[in-house]
Amino acid sequence: MPGKIYVLIDHGQGKIRGGSWEALALGQQIASGTGKTLHAVLLGQQTADLAGQVAGKRVDSVITAQDDRLAEYDPDAYTAALQQIVQADTPDLLLMAHIYQNIDLAPKVAAALGRGLVTDCIGYRLNEGQLVFVRQMFRNKLNADIKIHSEPPWIITLQAGAVPIDDLEEGSGTVESRSVDLSSVPENRVQLEAIQAMKGKVDLNKADVIVGVGRGIKKADNLKIIEDLAQALNAEIGASRPVVDNDWLERERQIGSSGQTVSPKLYIGCGISGAIQHVVGMKSANCIVAINSDANAPIFNIATYGIVGDLFEIVPSLTKKLRE
């Protein structure tokens, strides 16, 4: 089944987003498995240098669309541009990184095109020529194989880290500039200021050991046992999102996609289930210990050592042992 795979390449501050390289690597894999050609799509303004970088990978071509309306992300302009390109070229697949921008964009494109979209994929299978996409459901506790029933292109967003960037193959593709007409696209959504949450007070990156605390701690008053463990280990305390949302700890201690990314020698997760939004921020720790009462918690899939049990018993006992 020949055909074409398109990959949207995202960029910011003059750099290509890591997730887009992963999406391109996925495109290369599917292209190899199916014989389809692979094409990158780069929207923006003054993207020649970026297009050159992408063309240095194993792609058949890089399609660039330049327009003032594409200089910054605007859902209406981006949707219209992708719609024009896709409707002219009729690819089978449109791949994107599952980053915040595409969480906003992909469903709009899917609706505008009237095509099926599977978000946050962690893999795919090729079953007798039919592509099936794998994603997590039910608060990431179960995996599902998803079949798409729609005309092509099927739209896919890829979870960060699902395909290693190391898999990306070098090569050389052509660069092709495409004109899009965005003159009739409404200017509905205006970007105002961007703000960064209290950066700098706590730099978890300097810590060799991090004790991570999650929803399992139940309330702020219970944090004493975590503080004691951190002190015994000379560790910093990190947190998953619910802990920060509940104001049990400061937001700058949040680890994960909307917080800090850390890679300590030792990470001890206490009462953390291991939602992907947290895991992307700490999975590169050398050694991960998980303490959780739910044996099915996804944190045990990435941990080095696991203890299934009550953190209110285990953590004080561990602190005591370390102080001996």
Binding site: L142, A144, I146, H149, N296
Partner: peptide, 15 residues
């Protein structure tokens, strides 16, 4: 457009 859950399962690379 329709998405069909063709199979639901616990992650195979268990623990």
């Amino acid at each position: 457009p329709r998405l069909e859950v063709s199979r639901l399962y616990f992650e195979e690379s268990a623990s």
